[in-house]
Design a protein around this nucleic acid. Sequence first.
DNA 1: TGTCATCTGTCATGGGCTGACATAAATTGC
DNA 2: GCAATTTATGTCAGCCCATGACAGATGACA
Lengths: 213, 213
Amino acid sequence: MGLRERKKQRTRDALIDAALDLFLSRGYEATTIDQIAAEVEVSPRTFFRYFASKEDVVLSLTAGEQEILLAELAARPETEPPFTALCQAVRSFLGILREADDAAARRYLRCRKVVHSTPALLGGTMRLVKENERKLVAEVARRLGADPGEPLPRFIVSVFLGVVLACFGEHTLDLAALARRLEDLLTLAERSLRPGWDLPVRPGAAQPAPATS
Amino acid sequence: MGLRERKKQRTRDALIDAALDLFLSRGYEATTIDQIAAEVEVSPRTFFRYFASKEDVVLSLTAGEQEILLAELAARPETEPPFTALCQAVRSFLGILREADDAAARRYLRCRKVVHSTPALLGGTMRLVKENERKLVAEVARRLGADPGEPLPRFIVSVFLGVVLACFGEHTLDLAALARRLEDLLTLAERSLRPGWDLPVRPGAAQPAPATS
DNA sequence: TGTCATCTGTCATGGGCTGACATAAATTGC
DNA sequence: GCAATTTATGTCAGCCCATGACAGATGACA
């Protein structure tokens, strides 16, 4: 990797860290782009060459998170029931976070703290989640051999996201507490739902033919 | 009601209708406050005396919607299981919409169309829903005689909101199609969940003592 | 080293949003 | 009715976010 690439990455990380610092100390709205740029000693214009908007500094992390979840779901075996696969995918995500670089994990938690304490950012996060939801529904539908417009795939993803957001929407200080709360709610979900609820009603269609597209 | 009040209400409605017109024809981002204000023949400054922000024109309707849902839930009998009460509350909401003034119903549907086609507004809407979610959880917890922090009330509301958003997040042209889709998903939910899943695990605590506070 | 691509800073602009102040209108009390 | 008070509106000025255009600086590569 060339010098240019490394410099860019350093500037980007510096902007994120400076922004998170300011957001946490003065608040999101009270922080201006000029202040963030001054902290990193770049021009305000440069800020917008790294991030599309002020909220994008924080949301870019969430977007990456959503991509990982989708990738982990795609990596689950085809034979796994959809809801189980979703649960395993989010567990994998937490595992990745646990094994990640300390600075990255710290950034993630601080980012979540800012999001949680700023209504505007919460809205932006939900927008990203909603966009990813469509992809999750599509993947679940594919696994079920169903159409993405049908109620079942949508319902499965709804229940899953409901549980996940119920955890991630909390003030969470550390990953361990987050994981514990997640397991609590997933256990509750499994206790509450009938066995086989996330499989097609017809047992004959339980072996979905992989789409050739 | 005095003349002043009536004039205010007329200006407010005119601003909403003009904004929706422009948002639907030119798009949300492409529409400026100046254009909306010019359409109603008021100064741009006056716009902000009626609405806190550009998105607030649309979101104020959603906020009212959330309040109605909460009120309808509070009006359900205490003996009803929580999830049933939530389902009945959203059915009541649709009923209110059906019986409402034509202009109001038209505004609601056009508003939803704009929200659905504008990511930024979708985020704002989700923010409002999230804020209302806390109140719903609190009410469900009260009915269960549980603490709002416990997993069960949260899970119940999650499943409910998941279903509702799965419906309201669709392109819906008319109220009938919306109601049909809602019933589809609620039926699916009831088929998927174990009987009594939304009641406390201890049968002895099934008769929650109404909080005296 | 010299050329090229890319990054960065400066400047200018538009649009969202807010505060301050003056004007016009409606409401209230006489 | 008429004055006094309250409230809505318009005008002006300004901050901040965001974007386009252009020029200068810096790393990449032959």
